[in-house]
Write a protein that binds this DNA or RNA. Structure first.
Lengths: 213, 213
DNA sequence: GTTTTCATGTTGACAGTGTCAACAACGTGT
DNA sequence: ACACGTTGTTGACACTGTCAACATGAAAAC
């Protein structure tokens, strides 16, 4: 039960092979795309034989699912930290959150694609799905808080959550996959995100702009 | 120069191998996903030797890009036909178009993913990119027409196009990739699309009902 | 009509991959 | 001290993308 965490002396029994595999796979994914992620290359990166990962993952898809899960957890943690830092719960906070989401998606397009466009079956990796669900809860709560703070007024609140998430996800996806498409207008991702949010979150400003003013 | 179109007698010289490859690949993609699309299997489907496709496509990616291109062309043709059938150019026509887009994306999730989430490089397949651009043009024109008809009033018109497309694309993507996600509320794709469009395209119905009135 | 040429299809071969069964090394409880 | 289970290794297999060398047949040149 001792968490020996690879002190370096033991060539056998790596100590933390599962996490090491995920880290190596994430690194390969970031640098060389999905086609660059090979079980054999992953093993090579961490100086382990080619089929060692099979003691920790059922197959290659299992490792990739673990990578996607890691991505979702990183996303929800980042978002939760951001929301914790800023105590205010108005539209400005929601916008900050969505910008953070966009930055996350743009920072590692290959990982983002793995998270949102790899053909995992519906109930194949419940851990991954749960992690994804947790990330969405953070966004949903931000919208609900914004509404309770009175700066968001909509009938179909869950519809707004759905719309916001679809829009931002779609925008990130388009920027990552078709960056030269004319509809993106050669603008940067966050500039376009602001255009989208200006339409989706009209600041109903006339009476009171309390947030940043 | 005779377009002999495979009369069946000639086992050699297929006659239309390039298109046959694309069709077979599309069929395999639809039925078995991307991992089921194999050059060897494609060749097998059309009774041709394994490396025959190399006379028509530089490599496997080339064939896949041709499939994606086919998808984009099908999309823009469907959309253009729809717009031609209905002569009206109001918000209702725009909604019909976006529903058609959603139906297209849901009809073949694997193809949709290939079109919007396969790591083709930016300038790698100009034909495919051009076909994609043409499809977007149809949508853009529908929005412009809707605006000219007076039923759409927005400041940033291109921003609205961007927002609509991001939303619908994102929604389709989420439905395809994470169909059980709670934010989708177990509703069908087109029901959720209506929720999104109710927010994005407030009907400002003939007489009154200013959205935030 | 013969011959040349060239696009198109075939076969053999190779390196690389995911995966598994059989084996080896190590930590651990008895 | 010793058996055992966990973890890592090696050999092997089927399959893949890809290419060079060869085969075929239709059209062009003569």
């Amino acid at each position: 039960m001792s968490g020996k965490a690879q002190v370096g002396g033991d060539p056998y029994h790596h100590g933390d092979l599962a996490n090491a595999c995920v880290r190596a796979a994430l690194s390969l994914l970031h640098d060389h795309g999905l086609s660059g992620v090979t079980l054999r290359e992953v093993a090579r990166c961490i100086n382990v034989s080619r089929s060692a990962p099979y003691r920790h993952f059922a197959d290659k898809r299992g490792l990739l699912a673990a990578c996607a899960r890691h991505g979702f957890e990183q996303l929800s943690q980042t978002a939760a930290r951001l929301l914790a830092d800023y105590r205010t719960r108005d539209v400005a906070a929601l916008r900050r959150l969505l910008h953070e989401y966009a930055r996350f998606g743009a920072a590692d397009p290959h990982l983002y694609r793995l998270m949102f466009a790899s053909d995992f079956e519906v109930d194949e990796y419940p851990d991954m799905t749960a992690a994804a669900e947790r990330a969405f809860y953070v966004l949903q709560n931000a919208v609900i808080s914004g509404q309770q703070a009175g700066t968001l007024a909509v009938e179909d609140r869950d519809g707004l959550v759905l719309t916001l998430w679809s829009s931002v996800h779609g925008l990130v996806s388009l920027h990552n996959e078709l960056p030269t498409c004319s509809v993106l207008d050669t603008k940067a991702l966050e500039a376009n995100l602001d255009r989208v949010l200006d339409i989706l979150l009209p600041t109903t400003v006339p009476s009171a702009v309390q947030a940043t003013a």
